[in-house]
Design a protein around this nucleic acid. Sequence first.
DNA 1: CATGAATGAGCATTCATTCAT
DNA 2: CATGAATGAATGCTCATTCAT
Lengths: 209, 209, 209, 209
Amino acid sequence: MRKLPAKLASQLYGAAELIAERGLDGTKIDDIAEATGIPKATIYYHLDGKNGVLAFLLGDLLDLIAGEVGVAVSTEEDARTRLEAAVAAQLGVMVEHPFLCRALVGDLGRATRLPDLAEALRSAFYQPIEKLLSEGVADGSLRQVADPGAVAMSVFGAITVAGLSAAVEGSSTEASADAARFSAAICELILDGLATRRTRDDHESGERP
Amino acid sequence: MRKLPAKLASQLYGAAELIAERGLDGTKIDDIAEATGIPKATIYYHLDGKNGVLAFLLGDLLDLIAGEVGVAVSTEEDARTRLEAAVAAQLGVMVEHPFLCRALVGDLGRATRLPDLAEALRSAFYQPIEKLLSEGVADGSLRQVADPGAVAMSVFGAITVAGLSAAVEGSSTEASADAARFSAAICELILDGLATRRTRDDHESGERP
Amino acid sequence: MRKLPAKLASQLYGAAELIAERGLDGTKIDDIAEATGIPKATIYYHLDGKNGVLAFLLGDLLDLIAGEVGVAVSTEEDARTRLEAAVAAQLGVMVEHPFLCRALVGDLGRATRLPDLAEALRSAFYQPIEKLLSEGVADGSLRQVADPGAVAMSVFGAITVAGLSAAVEGSSTEASADAARFSAAICELILDGLATRRTRDDHESGERP
Amino acid sequence: MRKLPAKLASQLYGAAELIAERGLDGTKIDDIAEATGIPKATIYYHLDGKNGVLAFLLGDLLDLIAGEVGVAVSTEEDARTRLEAAVAAQLGVMVEHPFLCRALVGDLGRATRLPDLAEALRSAFYQPIEKLLSEGVADGSLRQVADPGAVAMSVFGAITVAGLSAAVEGSSTEASADAARFSAAICELILDGLATRRTRDDHESGERP
DNA sequence: CATGAATGAGCATTCATTCAT
DNA sequence: CATGAATGAATGCTCATTCAT
């Protein structure tokens, strides 16, 4: 379980698609070995078994997301703007690594059972959002909501599922465009909502002019 | 693959928790047999192997959701109101069948690979939302958005992930209260958005000089 | 294990081809049920399991052979002539029931392990030949050989293998012609031998003048 | 399906008796593993399942026979003499490997269904004989017969069945003596025939008035 | 360090057979 | 009598993992 050589690491990504398609349980170590060109025993030498492969791949992805999102979140802007940036960042990474994302979600059940991963997952995806929501309330850029936890979870869901969908269907050539489009759609949803404005304020009276 | 007797069907639900906790791959047929009291060979006589068990359980759940949501969506109200009802309906079912839901999501990757299920999933979860969004635009109760498909996917994500979270954590004794709380939070999010109203209006004008 | 109705018996022959092709072990009771149209449980009601099916089919074949050969052997002719008749009789039955024959031989190993069958086999195929050989010596129509047992076994082999080959390849439309041709060939071989006559007499002295 | 190490190969022969006695279907992989001392999984690592074991064992036997017969057939003698040598060679191998032979014949049906084996069987057993018969006609040492194919098949049957019988019953201590005795008996049969000479000559003229 | 070879432990699936109706 | 339904018992095969070189 030492730090694996860069070359192997890069080869290992060849397994992501396999795992995305078949799930980790449906992917045999032999398959991974064949797909990556790394001899089975060598994988064992460097990584801790099959779970190790998943952990490596996902750990990497999570680091990436955590990093990008972390940057997006650490600016001086107000929370709302940073939330937009965070959404864009997360989607950007997901769209750029579609196989890893699908592997992550496909084996989310298992991932949840790997303790380290569960925590990393939480801190990469969920916590930044939760934090932004509360900061937004503080700096006045976001509304106070009745149940912040539930809302944060929903926002997380909106981003993740949309990102996943983009990852599954997205043409790899237009990754960044896809990400931008989805990002805009999500921000529109979670910031402005779907209700027609006046109607919402006074459901009976009428639209804005 | 005949229609299994009601008694067996009910026994089979005893396997949902198992699958939810360990995933389908982590659940041995023997475990299922033991947990349900149905002899292994009898499971095979009625269902098509392990996948068959999952397919049966989830098929059932999806039918349930499709039904409840279908009812919620078929009223005479405006689309926005029906959307609220649909959210509540979906969350209601999810919270009431936490194990099935977790099993569904935990093995979502695999479920996706079972063709029938993939379609049922789509039509139970995603399509009603998509339809409501466009009907809302038509009846003026919901805003027109730039990318309806992406938004529908996000809404779907918001509901599902929140529902799942509720299903995982929710105390089974307060199921309906949980569902109501989550339902309200999600509706608040997807209808009104998170942006502070004034702030949002000013947002373009006032910020970065 | 009662005497099964004629109708079932005749249906049961539909299984012979199956068994011939796949062997008894390779043939599932369900296959037999499907091929014959007899419900699985009904087979069990009338016959004693899978072995029972084989026993029934082969028992029948063996009776047939024993009968035909018995008739051929019981004439007033000299032993040599009766041997020819026996060969023809055995081949005739084999060629007329190719599937049963192949089933018999294909599962000869197993058949040998069914005690009754082994004896029936021996008395249908081998013993008549052995008897004829010794009678031939007595009535002067056949030569005395050094090792009668070994010779009888060889004759049995010659007939059986040739018959089997005929059964496998033979066009079902020309069954009797095939049988006659093979019968003639075998008789030519076992009666006259292959050696050129003169040459044999004086193998040392020189080839044909 | 790699080339298995000599040690394993030799151990594997320990399975021949098992298979001879019970048939391949009646022999569990575990039995083979226990009898040979080779772990089950190791058998699978080197061979292609149960059929692979049979194929290996029989392939070996057939090579052996093909080799010995090949040598016997390749001398400068006339065809009749070489036929005698071939018979002796084939019987010699069969008697020396009684278990393999019984396994071969017991699972002949199955063997026939393994394509490679079927061909090897044909070329080891049948073809040399067929060839000798035609060469014998050419060099004058064997008679021309009406149906050479049928005769070759019968000769093949005579040798094989007798050999099998010898293999089954033969005391392993007198293997070569047995082989010689059977060999002589078979040659006597197939070369000189069973008909009494004079009688045969008279047969046409004198019999049934 | 890297890896080909070997294997222990596991398990889904099959199928002959039984039995209640 | 006949049979659809149910199941106990058996087993072939897989695969993650180890280890000697």
